[in-house]
């Protein structure tokens, strides 16, 4: 389902893929960023020897201080980067060796709530939430019904046609959450999802995550919010300085 084996991650300067062993990637060469002399050595590794395994339907907090590598862990799990070393298996696909063409289909089974939302500013809230369904080629009638229903659930049915810039931070976050769960993903990742929400909204969001988890979605939530963790006790993965220092098992 989700298996890390001695995974290490080192970013290249473009920030996407770790350089292939022994040579720079073609994309890297073309990016044309001239490297200042004396800075040719590779960037330091940000994650070291990460090993753990999650069964389908698990719920985990991802904890650790800022800079511990939480975001990099999530980036590995939503396929924004591939491991520099080790083996990573996501939803049955061996990410380390899979051809590039196998990744888009995998990404569609993973929902992500970004800390900075990453909404498309030139689209309406409705179109932002509908985007994953349209990429998956669902029929437009079903899209309209599903999106309208979910937007009502997150309390945004009055704002369907507004662009994100006209919504408050909390409202944008709810649009981002709706976009992440609209496809009922097998794996749901969230990076500080309650950062812009008041306590009542945060509780509501946790109920949504638990509901999705109950029907089989694997949920991983990265947060600093210890109060939230205390109110919703669950197993945790704790990172410190790029290493996994605590791996709770399911109760």
């Amino acid at each position: 389902m989700l298996r890390f084996e001695m995974v290490g991650l080192r970013y290249d300067r473009a920030g996407y893929t770790p350089p292939a062993r022994g040579r720079r990637s073609a994309a890297d060469r073309r990016s044309g960023e001239s490297r200042p002399p004396g800075r040719r050595q590779p960037l330091p590794e940000v994650l070291h020897d990460i090993s753990f395994q999650l069964d389908p339907g698990a719920f985990r907090w991802l904890l650790g201080p800022s800079g511990a590598g939480k975001s990099s862990m999530l980036r590995l799990m939503y396929l924004a980067v591939r491991p520099t070393r080790g083996r990573l298996n996501l939803l049955g696909t061996e990410v380390t060796t899979a051809p590039r063409t196998a990744l888009p289909g995998l990404r569609r089974r993973i929902g992500v709530v970004f800390q900075d939302f990453r909404l498309l500013q030139h689209l309406s809230a409705f179109d932002n939430v509908a985007l994953p369904l349209r990429l998956a080629g669902r029929p437009e009638g079903q899209i309209k019904a599903d999106v309208t229903e979910l937007m009502r659930w997150v309390g945004l049915s009055r704002y369907l046609d507004l662009p994100p810039a006209m919504l408050s931070g909390g409202e944008q976050q709810r649009v981002a959450i709706a976009r992440a769960v609209i496809t009922r993903p097998a794996l749901l990742l969230a990076d500080e999802p309650t950062g812009n929400l008041d306590d009542a909204q945060a509780e509501r969001l946790m109920q949504l995550f638990k509901e999705l988890n109950r029907i089989g979605t694997t949920v991983i939530v990265a947060t600093h919010n210890e109060q939230l963790v205390a109110r919703h006790p669950a197993p945790a993965l704790r990172l410190s300085e790029g290493r996994l220092v605590r791996v709770d098992r399911d109760a």
Binding site: L79, T101, P104, L106, R107, R108, V112, R118, A136, R179
Partner: peptide, 16 residues
């Protein structure tokens, strides 16, 4: 670039 990265991250293929 940003919109492309977002759409790519949501599972759009290169050919799309």
């Amino acid at each position: 670039r940003e919109a492309i990265e977002i759409v790519h991250g949501l599972g759009a293929t290169d050919s799309y």
